[in-house]
Design a protein around this nucleic acid. Structure first.
Length: 227
DNA sequence: GGCCAGGACACCA
DNA sequence: TGGTGTCATGGC
């Protein structure tokens, strides 16, 4: 079976241009945002991040020392604030316990070992973990999110029910191990899905339609007529 | 007023 | 191992 992933990337890049992800001012902000964005609209996350910045708490030390209740209140706009405040505290506690609260130290060793360690932190699942590795640590760990599953299952390439690690492995097997490529690919998937691939079927303006090489009927109910 | 949004986890069979 | 309920705000 032909590897369609590179050409899909090219199509998305042509359509949207480079996305310059992650939308954050520092690697630490990426880590915080990765936890706050769990099952949440990014616009709401931005409000929570802004609250943390305004309070001067968007640092490892700040989040370590702030009271849990105050932290929850500051991140309230991001939703699930009681859960996420604990998750942030757990991550910061782990960061201090294992790496002295230093993000550079956290990323200094072997990233695949770090991945396993991060997955052991309560509240950090595979997507959050890979987002931290890729966008904060600049390590070639592909990020799979709900958009990725939705788009590529609609394209008929993967089963939507496939496990996270299966999805991730498929991308990493079929693409070169390239941090910049993984960075851009995931960002383009998000951009694309926000515009064309929410819960509704893809619309006629979908940039994947004209060059779709794999039977767009999966998406539209019509069959590709060739040519 | 309902749906949706860049998940993770506990619990249960 | 897989399915289900829970956590919550804000925009449309």
């Amino acid at each position: 079976m032909k590897n369609r992933l590179p050409e899909i990337f090219d199509t998305l890049l042509d359509a949207y241009g480079p996305r310059f992800w992650w939308p954050a001012e520092s690697p630490f902000e990426v880590c915080v945002g990765a936890i706050l964005t769990q099952n949440t609209n990014w616009a709401n996350v931005e409000k929570a991040i802004a609250n943390l910045k305004e309070a001067g708490l968007l640092t490892a030390e700040g989040l370590r020392d702030v009271a849990l209740e105050r932290l929850a209140e500051l991140i309230r706009p991001a939703g699930y604030f009681n859960v996420k405040s604990i998750r942030l505290k757990d991550f910061i506690g782990w960061l201090y316990g294992e790496h002295g609260g230093n993000l550079e130290a956290m990323f200094a060793g072997d990233w695949q070992r770090l991945r396993q360690e991060l997955l052991g932190v309560r509240g950090i699942g595979p997507e959050t973990c890979d987002s931290i590795l890729l966008y904060a640590g600049h390590q070639p760990s592909f990020v799979v999110d709900s958009y990725t599953k939705r788009l590529f299952s609609r394209l008929g390439l993967f089963s939507e029910n496939a496990a996270y690690e299966e999805f991730r492995a498929l991308f990493m097997r079929n693409l070169p191990s390239d941090t910049e490529l993984y960075n851009e690919y995931h960002a383009l998937i998000v951009q694309h899905c926000k515009e064309h691939c929410r819960t509704k079927p893809l619309c006629a303006e979908c940039p994947l339609l004209p060059r779709c090489p794999f039977g767009i009927g999966v998406l539209t109910g019509k069959t590709k007529s060739g040519g």
